[in-house]
């Protein structure tokens, strides 16, 4: 009994130290980043597209726009393929295939991002350059690479959401004479909607934070992209590109970029949590 309590206390300390680490990181980046936002002026920092640290211009609007388009692009690609996969694996495939396919999809999450980036640069970028034009390094290339990278996240959460739909709903729908496809679109997807939303939001959180693969395929131009074939620079790639060199105000401005990213990702995760809570709450009410 006593040993149990000691081990319990040890584990509590370990768990708390992880949270403490997170808190320290948050405090550190806010302390480094917030002063420059105040000094430059929040309006100038967030609403100017002029990023030229050597001249003292710190406007991150084009970087935020870059992160946004790339993330939305990735979410669209990720959603289409993941939802298709999740529906097929839960409804239309023999159980053996689903059992074999799910771990394989999750394996995709274990591939280092630099490998995705490298494959993107070597195969995808020349294809885009050759068939669609532009320099190849583009919003489109980054969206596709990120879309594939977040596929495992979205797919496995979507599968869980679909499997959580009570069997009685499906049986009821079939009993009323609906076909399997009608059951999927009219009952299954609706019942699982909030879980699917959570899946996509978590996928977006992963996409917006991804760095290495994006640096390699996005082209990193500072201008706001006008088409899917234009190069783009995201918040994360801006930090990674310039952190090694930065000092003084420039360094602080990069931390401020990190603060922005931190807030965006926290908001996304909170939204995902809220979406999945709503689902759980509704089911309990029934």
């Amino acid at each position: 009994m006593k040993r149990d309590r000691i081990i319990g206390a040890v584990l509590l300390v370990v768990a708390l130290s992880a949270i403490l680490g997170l808190a320290l990181i948050a405090v550190f980046i806010f302390r480094e980043g917030v002063p420059i936002i105040l000094r430059v002026g929040a309006r100038k920092f967030f609403l100017s597209t002029d990023w030229e640290p050597s001249l003292g211009h710190f406007g991150i609007l084009s970087l935020m726009a870059g992160s946004l388009v790339v993330t939305v692009g990735a979410a669209v690609i990720g959603l289409v393929f993941s939802l298709g996969l999740a529906i097929v694996l839960t409804q239309f495939s023999p159980p053996g295939l689903a059992a074999a396919a799910k771990p394989l999809i999750e394996l995709l999450a274990g591939i280092p991002s630099v490998v995705y980036g490298f494959v993107g640069v070597v195969t995808l970028v020349p294809l885009i350059r050759h068939f669609l034009g532009g320099p190849g390094l583009s919003v489109l290339a980054a969206s596709i690479v990120l879309g594939v990278m977040i596929l495992p996240t979205i797919t496995s959460i979507a599968i869980d959401a679909l499997q959580a739909v009570p069997r009685s709903y499906l049986e009821g729908s079939i009993a009323l004479g609906a076909t399997r496809w009608q059951t999927v679109t009219m009952v299954l997807l609706r019942a699982a909607r909030s879980g699917l939303v959570a899946a996509v939001i978590l996928g977006m959180g992963r996409a917006i934070g991804e760095t290495m693969a994006v640096i390699m395929v996005a082209g990193n131009a500072l201008a706001v992209p006008h088409s899917l074939l234009d190069p783009v620079r995201t918040l994360t790639s801006n930090i990674a590109l310039e952190m090694g060199y930065a000092s003084g105000d420039h360094r602080q401005a990069l931390f401020a970029t990190g603060v922005t990213l931190f807030v965006i990702i926290t908001l996304l995760n909170t939204a995902a949590l809220a979406a999945s809570r709503r689902r759980a709450g509704r089911r309990r009410a029934k």
Partner: peptide, 26 residues
Amino acid sequence: EEGSGTRESFVRLVMGNERISRRALT
């Protein structure tokens, strides 16, 4: 990228007071 010695040399030797285009791939 900003901070690269090659970039700074290029700016000093070629660009002078002009700024490198924001469309430039980095």
